[in-house]
Amino acid sequence: MNALINYTLHLADNSLILGQRNSEWCGHGPVLEQDIAITNISLDLIGQARNFYQYASSLINQRGKPLNNPASEDSLAYLRTEREFKNCLLTEQPNGDWGQTVLRQFFFSQYQYLLFQQLQNSKDEQIAAIAVKSLKEVSYHLRWSSEWVIRLGDGTEESHRRTLKAIDELWMYSGELFQPASYELLILNEGIASDLDLLKPKWEEKVKEIFSEANLPVPENVFIQTGGKEGRHTEQLGYILAELQFMQRTYPGNEW
């Protein structure tokens, strides 16, 4: 039960934190159509997060918490601390320029696409249902971000240079996507979580494909940063939560 709750929270936190990051673009995009696109992706991710949090809260409440203070999507998003968040480090990295944002999205969407394809068959019905529901959106995120990586990689000299820099900033966080967390291993055998060892080579192959079309090199021998899934984050997350949780922390217990 605890492992399932933690796994569901991990899936929720990934979507929330990346959705929160993408939402910072709203009103500031490079061109109106893309402002709308990135906001849309942000909305989809927050929608996914809500589905996972709602499920996690029902599990927590079943497990038995004081009745006067039941868990909810908002208590899970707004009242947990930095060490309790289980999102991958990739999702909390700053937006940087447009090149960094679309590359971060590409790495994540490629992973999420493969993951949700597997989770469609999860033995946990709720997780499977959310995966099915999300997969259509994620396919769009993947197509959109792949196209941008190609456009920027194979665009101008400047966009190529900026994309190389983005790879340099973000590649070290891509490996964590495939490192199973302790709670993940516990429910892997029950057929609930998906086997990340199977996803990794597929992800690498797809990334190689897009990078080759974009004239971008695939980095080798990069040291991989990990810890997010177990609650050990980069310094970024504290600031994200300070902003995200500000209202609930300042005015505890109110309805909004």
Partner: peptide, 21 residues
Amino acid sequence: ITRAPTLKRKAILLAKVQDEA
């Protein structure tokens, strides 16, 4: 948007600002 008090309010606000765009 980044400080909306609940997830539902955040989603509604994002959709609204997107409508303006």
